[in-house]
Design a protein around this nucleic acid. Structure first.
Lengths: 224, 224
DNA sequence: GTCTATATATTGATAGAC
DNA sequence: GTCTATCAATATATAGAC
């Protein structure tokens, strides 16, 4: 059995870091590593990424990097944790007391902006999903499900009041996730299809415009 | 420089296979390998997958597998090639002479059905995208772009005739891809959020229903 | 065609000098 | 804290017996 996430080499006990305050220079080095690791992990996934690559991207030697994060998994864990909060912020932000249409419109825009500004985080997340989310499945079934349940209830309430067309709130949320994250995760494909002439950053504004139209009115023209 | 796709070991020249007809037993073995490789590649990506894993899943020894596909890359290449045709079939199928609304509705259903029936192929493709599509970028900029350009023109024509609400055809196609493939690529997340009770195969029917509603009518209720 | 044994490179992680 | 050197495991691929 090839267990990808098992620490290799001889008995590796995570190096005990003393609980002393972290210096500025230490944090800067850590941030440098995390920044480089985000590049590499988001592109190759956990197993595809190598410490060599991360160290080179961070401009330091491999043992030096391992001085700050004793194990490869530690870096990945930190990146995931740091990202999940940011990632769910837009959904948390959706206000049950607000007007349904503007709330959903603004949720879509916020989510699309995250794909534009944090594409690597999106791909890191997508990589984890494709692999069956081994490292965050608990969070999906716990924290995430709770949040979505809550927001689905809010949306369902809006529909009951006739402020939105009736539709499954869960699949609505999936659709918003899918359409917005697509521009980060499938960026190569989007660029290839749009061609060089349309591959400027304008594609995000076009996407925002299209998605607003889609989610608000759909494709079928109204008679009259 | 760590070049992941470079063949390793000593001077490896692809073993010259004689151009003699392939026997039935050979094809069966190859299919067995491809089937196993699809499992492993779709889950771990190209670099994350190992020949050991594939060989074990196929129930044969590693050298035996390498007898049929001399290099790891050969297996992956075959899987990609075999998949791309299937993958684009639903879009090719969209008929410019048909009625716009039924054509699009049926395209969505067909694409969603592919996510249900071929989730591993979808994830294989997604993995390749996340990595910047190094092995199929030419196909994206060539064959795929040509096909999408053509179909975008068809959809644009329908809009000119007033048979569809005006919207960017390219982003419409992206939205259909994203929403349908989401159910294969982010399957873990979908299941986690819907919970055990709603994680039967019924979720695909729910999704089909929702997506039809979304793409046809959007969320905003019509007055009157 | 299939197997055992093995060559060679890569990789995660450690040792120990400075 | 940082580096060079290196270990042990893993991985791709080949050699050669049967």
């Amino acid at each position: 059995m090839l267990e990808s996430d098992r620490p290799k080499g001889r008995g590796t006990e995570a190096r005990q870091r003393k609980a002393r305050p972290i210096t500025r220079i230490q944090r800067e080095k850590q941030d440098l590593i995390l920044e480089a690791a985000l590049d590499v992990f988001s592109l190759h996934g956990f197993r595809g990424a190598t410490i060599d690559q991360i160290a080179e991207a961070a401009g330091m030697s491999k043992p030096n990097l391992l001085y700050y994060f004793p194990r490869k998994e530690d870096i990945h864990k930190r990146l995931m944790a740091g990202m999940l909060d940011i990632w769910l912020a837009p959904l948390r932000h959706m206000d049950s007391d607000g007007d349904p249409i503007p709330e959903i419109r603004s949720y879509i825009r916020r989510k699309l902006k995250m794909s534009r500004d944090f594409p690597r985080q999106s791909r890191l997340f997508a990589n984890e999903m494709l692999q069956g989310a081994p490292r965050i499945i608990d969070m999906l079934e716990g924290e995430l499900k709770t949040l979505v349940d809550e927001k689905a209830k809010v949306i369902g309430g809006w529909m009951d009041e006739g402020k939105l067309n009736r539709a499954d709130p869960y699949h609505l949320i999936f659709a918003i996730w899918a359409t917005t994250q697509h521009y980060a995760d499938f960026d190569v494909q989007v660029r290839a299809v749009l061609g060089n002439d349309r591959s400027g950053e304008g594609r995000f504004e076009d996407a925002a415009c299209f998605l607003e139209q889609l989610f608000m009115h759909g494709l079928k023209p109204q008679r009259g």
